[in-house]
Design a protein around this nucleic acid. Sequence first.
DNA 1: GGGCGCCCAAATA
DNA 2: TATTTGTGCGCCC
Length: 269
Amino acid sequence: MPELPEVEITKRGLVPLIINQEVSRVILHRENLRWAIPKNLITILANQKIKTIKRRAKYLLIKFEAGTLIIHLGMSGSIKVVDIKTPLLKHEHFELQFNNGTSMRLNDPRRFGAVLFSKDGSHKLLDSLGVEPLEAVFNNGYLYQKSRNKRKNIKDFIMDSKIVVGVGNIYACESLFMASINPQRKAGNVSKTRYKILTQCIKDILTQAIKAGGTTLQDFSQVDGNPGYFTQTLSVYGCENKTCHFCKSKIIKIVQNQRSTFYCRKCQT
DNA sequence: GGGCGCCCAAATA
DNA sequence: TATTTGTGCGCCC
């Protein structure tokens, strides 16, 4: 389920439910997701209290005295907090039970996600990540400067997590539409002015999506703890043959780097 | 830098 | 019933 806004909403939903909660039991319902889930979490996290929850890129970082639990939701992961007696659902692979009688469960049908642990909070997977798109370091000159001499297409470029994190397939399409840039354009062949516009569009699109997701938070701990995708805000993604908001021509679908791209041939140049 | 493949389920043919 | 497609991303060539 996750792109950056969905992970951010998950984080915000978790904060009031699990901060300061003490772990009574850790359950691994299977040994691995994308990678092995460390078995020693069962002993390491026992009786540990959750201190903070942060997000870096699409990783959730849940901090304990003993170290940091690193969770990635992959393509289909979601987290919910339920009463401990709630029957376990299919694909709920990992569970943290708390002394207050609730349980945080990770559901991930495709199992592309990950549950990892780091004593000092650092991790190989976090080392080579680019800047956060909603922070000030992602400024108007950043993409322009990073894109010089890049021959790959601009969509792939903004989806490169070594450059900027958290821009997935949906919001890459949406941002390029909002900025009126053709996704097939070579990254190194886009002007400083257009990158400035694109930068603001990425920030706007992500911020809007987080805002839309915020409305789902009151239901976060209910039966459906999955905030889902905020489809009401999408202008091009999944909109093949639908009408462009601006010029009324048809949105088309192409394939780039084995991923679907949706765009308006007339508006995006 | 491009493409593969991990895995399951829903949509489509 | 069989095939295609999908919100991610590390790894291999």
